[in-house]
Design a protein around this nucleic acid. Structure first.
Length: 153
DNA sequence: GCCAACGTTGGC
DNA sequence: GCCAACGTTGGC
């Protein structure tokens, strides 16, 4: 089992939406490095830190679980769709997505400043300046540490 | 709103 | 294949 962090803007699709929906395709990722993770690395059963970006403060706000491994992002095939990309076809998909299920909301969001200040999280990708990758691998001990921080009062 | 850090595009 | 110009992400 592996662990990941997925960024999302709460104004677009946040933890509230995932809780309401129960399950959601993680669609619209249009970066090749992230695509490769979605297509090749992320497996059913893997756990995910749900991270809100572009808000103050940025924070891990919940936990999700991958319930379907990488499959083509069909949004890319629909002309007029926000995530349409004519280069991607059913015969040769360019973009991929996974399905993520809501697991829990952290009682306390773990904020980016908090993560940066925590020696136990040293080296984590998300705290690196300029780390724009929207799907990131997370070390197991980092994942568990954040989960623990988020469940404390 | 600013801008650093990337990623992508396209001329050559 | 290089690299300048441009676009985007996302913290601040």
């Amino acid at each position: 089992m592996r662990y990941w962090l997925m960024k999302t803007e709460p104004g677009v699709y946040g933890i509230d939406d995932l809780e309401r929906d129960g399950v959601s395709p993680w669609e619209g990722v249009r970066n090749y490095q992230a695509r490769n993770l979605l297509r090749d690395e992320i497996a059913e059963g893997d756990e995910v830190l749900i991270y809100h970006s572009n808000v103050q403060p940025p924070a891990v706000v919940g936990i999700g679980r991958v319930i379907r491994a990488g499959y083509p992002d069909v949004c890319a095939w629909e002309p007029g769709h926000k995530y349409y990309d004519r280069r991607s076809t059913p015969e040769n998909p360019v973009w991929y997505r996974v399905d993520v299920a809501f697991v829990e909301r952290l009682a306390r969001p773990v904020t980016l400043p908090q993560m940066k200040a925590d020696p136990a999280l040293a080296g984590m990708m998300v705290i690196r300046k300029g780390a724009r990758l929207s799907v990131q691998p997370v070390a197991e001990d980092h994942f568990q540490h954040i989960r623990r921080l988020g469940s404390e009062g």
